[in-house]
């Protein structure tokens, strides 16, 4: 995105011809017509635990390389329902990112971008989205949605890093939290999850799901058992 594009967007100038909202998004939107029952037990809620890997950390220039996700429904992760796909034709310039993901530049295989987005949206449905420092992933997904003329995601979101801090600091004095103790690696070490296939989207999503189950059980012990209890 060029600077001029950016500015004009901020000023609401660059509307151009409006793209039609894609069909898959319309179906997705319908799922939210029924108001979510906030009394749902956390143990009974349905979750989509996702992770994305991107070419870098710049929202403006970097792109999603791969997406992974598992569902937690009925307190079970069904491996056959998990997703893991790469997006075709991504150019990875950042050498570090290459080494990190073990991906070659100009990745030849994978799905088309739109196809991947559609699969992801179908996968998520109206489940609660869970992820580790999920904010960045959500922004990337929303940028992608926008590119195809769709509004942003509508789901409820839980962040496992935030939840862990919440458990560690019941008084919410998060200023004492040391951020490096809340990375996925640090939490893996803390909870004894073997970080296999780390830094692949699917691998990280799976690990996050395992951590999330442990967190749910700990939250339950503290009397936080309904979706509404998680509201601040």
């Amino acid at each position: 995105m060029s600077l001029i594009q950016k500015i004009s967007e901020k000023l609401g100038l660059n509307q151009g011809p409006k793209l039609p909202i894609p069909e898959f998004y319309q179906a997705y939107e319908k799922l939210f017509e029924v108001k979510y029952d906030e009394n749902t037990l956390l143990s009974q809620a349905e979750y989509a635990i996702i992770d994305t890997e991107a070419t870098g950390l710049d929202l403006d220039t970097d792109e999603i390389i791969s997406i992974g996700g598992v569902t937690l429904v009925n307190q079970s992760i069904d491996i056959s329902q998990s997703i893991s796909f790469y997006i075709k034709g991504r150019k990875i310039s950042d050498r570090e990112a290459m080494a990190l993901h073990g991906i070659l530049p100009d990745q030849p295989f994978g799905m088309d971008e739109l196809e991947a987005l559609e699969s992801l949206i179908n996968f998520i449905g109206n489940k609660i989205i869970v992820g580790h420092y999920i904010g960045f992933d959500l922004k990337m997904i929303n940028i992608l949605l926008k590119k195809y003329g769709a509004p942003a995601l509508k789901n409820k979101v839980l962040d496992t890093a935030e939840l862990t801090k919440r458990l560690d600091f019941p008084l919410r004095n998060y200023q004492f939290a040391v951020n490096k103790e809340y990375t996925l690696d640090a939490l893996c070490a803390r909870y004894g999850v073997i970080p296999k296939a780390r830094h692949t989207a699917a691998g990280d999503a799976y690990i996050t799901a395992i951590l999330f189950q442990k967190l749910l059980s700990d939250l339950d012990k503290k009397g936080i058992s309904q979706v509404k209890d998680l509201k601040r």
Partner: peptide
């Protein structure tokens, strides 16, 4: 079989 496994957490 691995692809059909269901993973559950028990406290």
């Amino acid at each position: 079989i691995s692809g059909k496994v269901i993973v559950k957490f028990f406290a």
